[in-house]
Design a protein around this nucleic acid. Sequence first.
DNA 1: ATTCTATTTTGTAATCATTACAGATATATA
DNA 2: TATATATCTGTAATGATTACAAAATAGAAT
Lengths: 146, 146
Amino acid sequence: MEASFEGLKQELKKRDINLSYQRLKVLEYLTLNRCHPTVDQIFTNLHRDIPTLSKTTVYNTLRILQEAGLIKVVTIEDNETRYDIDVEDHGHFKCKLCGKIYDFHTDMSSLTFDDLSNFRIDSKDVYFKGICPGCLSNIKENKRRG
Amino acid sequence: MEASFEGLKQELKKRDINLSYQRLKVLEYLTLNRCHPTVDQIFTNLHRDIPTLSKTTVYNTLRILQEAGLIKVVTIEDNETRYDIDVEDHGHFKCKLCGKIYDFHTDMSSLTFDDLSNFRIDSKDVYFKGICPGCLSNIKENKRRG
DNA sequence: ATTCTATTTTGTAATCATTACAGATATATA
DNA sequence: TATATATCTGTAATGATTACAAAATAGAAT
């Protein structure tokens, strides 16, 4: 687990971001928890290991990592900003019932759209919403039982 | 302008939403201002005509209209919830420089993605970010002038 | 038109996420 | 080790949104 630390350090150095214990820990958390955590989740979990950790530091770190292109912000819902270590193009599906966010692979280049040739497109995000298989089967189960 | 009121009333009645002056005005504002306004923009503008209007009412109304499927929430940015009267599938492009949000037509059905056949997909959103033509030419202009 | 009931609106207070800021701490360099 | 710089921390401030109760309004019944 601590082994990947070296790799993360390289990533930060490559981008001229000074390494600090807090920054490495945030990055490590995102690497190990690919569930698109919120700031609060990150803070609460890291706080167990680092009792002096401040939420401000988590915010600052996430901003720096995002500006460096190491992480992506997921704004699929308006009341909860989430963070994703996977910066490759992919889609996000949010289940309305359990709230879980699922990754799915999509080929963004397959998407046809109006002529935007005079626009400089830097990023593309695809967000789906609906109900996941687990919650769907729960619904069916409840119906059967009445 | 007031002529479209009748049409909007029908829309509300069809969905069992009681009509009130405030609700009609919010809906009318969104119909006439298709720039994906924020709550604050809607409130500030309507407040000129309706001095007693409360921001809470704007929030309540937007929630009701959204639940009825009459409007869509645009969460392309994490710090500003925006509202769109156009509920048909289409993409949103946000310019990083001027902040303006542009609509563009896309064919969502052209997008290829992983097997989600066990998921119930209710909505699809496509968000692009980058720089719009106007801001791009401003950049060029500034460079030329040094 | 008047009364009654249910719904909606309003305004304030509470909540929650995020940012600003300044002092304390840690890091890198000489 | 001393010094300068960058980072972290904790509190306070901000801004968006929600909760809530009283006031106002709309629609139905008389």
